[in-house]
Nucleic acid binder design. Structure first.
Lengths: 205, 205
DNA sequence: TAGTCACCTATACTAAAGTATAGGTAAGCC
DNA sequence: GGCTTACCTATACTTTAGTATAGGTGACTA
């Protein structure tokens, strides 16, 4: 019953996935090799239930391809697929209207499950995805911080001013300014907003 | 093929879900009405592939029941099910070794999908779960922003300075300062860091 | 046509943020 | 004892951030 259009510039990947999906239930699978090709075939076929887009593909330009497809065919469910994308990319894809994100590390059976999820109206996001790399990177940067610098960063990440932080930690404002400067240097950022965002992204507090 | 033990203290819920799952493929379903009952039946049956625990059930004590089951039967996959739990509870359940979290708001078909996901070795977590309450509040605040104010907030949320934002939007720095001030007032914050964090929390960009 | 709203700019100012340099204290280590 | 490190403070300075007030444009609307 469901018609699926899958777009990937690697023919080998495209063909094997398409072949596998064809063996499932009543899936009918169409293929494309880039975004423009996909859009044209969407217009031609007119009965696609799910569009699967490879993230690293000519015409995608980050999430532009996703946006483009969503605008042109608001009724069609769109899932992104990638072998390399970061968790950040994946979540922002979901935030931008994707109905699912399919990492290529999924088993074939799980991929079918994910697709059926999306087809049934749910949204699919792999729970474990990307929690490894990003939990190893930050530690190396944040672990350089001394105790006081960490405390300063914590208060800074609530949006407090230097003066407020100073009062809270029981020291002079100049001292906080010093800590703040050191935190910037160690984290490689250039102002407090960036520092706060970095801390938030790595869920330090 | 797969044997499933489902535990819930509401007989009506328990029976209907069990009956529905029995109709699927080759599922064999067993039932229990509390944690102790479930543990005893696990020992007796000895061939359970998946244990589904209701979060609000005698003997659960928050996530204690989950922990108990995980320790006694490390090889058995455990999923939590709940109609009321917060997103926080759900994520901490996952962090404590649950293989899946099933909100009772799922459709029956989606529940089967989720179960099959877990049975195949993946972990399932509903993507949208708990994002309603927290996304309803902010919209009322953020929707007050004009186009330019929204664009300013977006750049501000990357950690750019007023000067950089001005260059990027092709206007004078004073203009950005004006927008920034208005954004603060509309969002009810007192500096750019707080504004950026608020935007991040609500996943605006 | 008068009113409203979003937008942009200008001038002027106060407050905070951020940088730089110097120096002092205490604790731990080879 | 000399060395390092984390910590705190001081003075002095430049740069942003943030506030306030005033004015101009164009678009849309009662």
């Amino acid at each position: 019953m469901p018609n699926i259009l899958i777009a990937d510039d690697h023919d080998l990947v495209l063909d094997t996935i398409a072949a596998y999906l064809e063996t499932v239930d009543g899936f009918t699978v169409f293929t494309a090799t880039n975004v423009q090709d996909a859009m044209e075939k969407m217009r031609g076929l007119d009965a696609i239930d799910l569009l699967i887009l490879d993230y690293n593909m000519p015409g995608m330009n980050g999430l532009n391809g996703l946006e483009q497809a969503r605008k042109a065919f608001p009724a069609v469910k769109v899932a992104l697929m990638s072998g390399v994308a970061s968790r950040e990319v994946a979540t922002s894809a979901m935030a931008n209207g994707a109905h699912g994100f399919i990492p290529k590390s999924l088993t074939a059976a799980s991929m079918v499950n994910a697709i059926q999820f999306v087809l049934s109206g749910e949204r699919y996001f792999p729970f474990d995805f990307g929690s490894n790399e990003e939990n190893s990177k930050p530690n190396s940067a944040f672990s350089d911080l001394s105790d006081r610098e960490m405390q300063t960063l914590e208060q800074l990440s609530i949006g407090l001013s230097n003066k407020e932080i100073a009062r809270k930690l029981g020291v002079q404002e100049v001292t906080i300014k010093l800590h703040v400067k050191n935190v910037f240097a160690k984290l490689g950022v250039s102002n407090r907003t960036q520092a706060a965002l970095l801390a938030k992204e790595n869920q330090l507090f």
